[in-house]
Design a protein around this nucleic acid. Sequence first.
DNA 1: TTTGGTATGTTATAATGTATCAATTGTGCT
DNA 2: AGCACAATTGATACATTATAACATACCAAA
Lengths: 155, 155
Amino acid sequence: MNKQRLTSTLNKAKQVCLEHGRKFTIQRKQILQILLTTDVSLSAYELVSCYKLRTSSSVSVMSVYRILRFLESVNLVRRLNSANKYIAYDTGRERCKDDLSLFLICRHCQKVETLTVSQSDVATLFPHFAEVGFTSQTTQFEMLGVCNECQAKIA
Amino acid sequence: MNKQRLTSTLNKAKQVCLEHGRKFTIQRKQILQILLTTDVSLSAYELVSCYKLRTSSSVSVMSVYRILRFLESVNLVRRLNSANKYIAYDTGRERCKDDLSLFLICRHCQKVETLTVSQSDVATLFPHFAEVGFTSQTTQFEMLGVCNECQAKIA
DNA sequence: TTTGGTATGTTATAATGTATCAATTGTGCT
DNA sequence: AGCACAATTGATACATTATAACATACCAAA
């Protein structure tokens, strides 16, 4: 992500916070910026370390957890259940309100690629779904595997 | 799961272990049996408690983790990433070797329903998949939501 | 200026999971 | 039976991830 795009994304993020009547504090901005400028997912504790390195200031783990929860609540951050780590959620790309995300997580380089799937596609895939009468509240799927770069290296 | 089916499932499980040149010890059997006779997922620590209650004997948490990892390795147990809990993996139902499971997890009653999807269906759903060149090693998806029984109760 | 909501700091603790090494058990072999 | 060997389990310590509870700081509106 280049500098210009980063600035624009952070500005949008600020708007999102303000629309929710919440602040885009320096700490929230820094945490989001760290997540935006890496292509791997980071744990709360890793974020504490990065924060220290990049700002010559510091945050408590508690604050990081709170900040992550907040950023998640306004859809600026996603948590990866299969890794207990967090990634920035790209607000730049066009997406329907109820599209689902598919995160492709590389076991080797940890890089996370994000794809988008529509609700109707999911419904098509899971025809038994309607039968069992389950009401999904899930907004993301996670797949572990190997990305093409790493695949090439291995072979 | 009725008694007869349970016995048959446990026998099959024993076969699976032996085929892998491993033992189906009393502890492994008990842990699997506990998981087979509940329809909710259980954490390692919950399994320790259940074990104590049901057998008037006990296991260490360490052993439970090891047993779970072993049972996972022979595909008799699955771990739910979204909950850090474990469920028995039904060997009874017909399934292709590389089918994927879709676990429907109810937020209210914690019950887990298991559906099956073929690899090819998944490939159809995610057309961008081939483009990004990601090699998936994932064998399951997890969806959180509300099951039909709970939905009815709520409404 | 005081009051109410938002945000952060601080400490303690819960929940989940791994590392390590010793002890035990079981199995096959002689 | 006695022995060697691998698989399994126990026990302790520790690492990682996460929440609870309560105090303090900040800031804007009444």
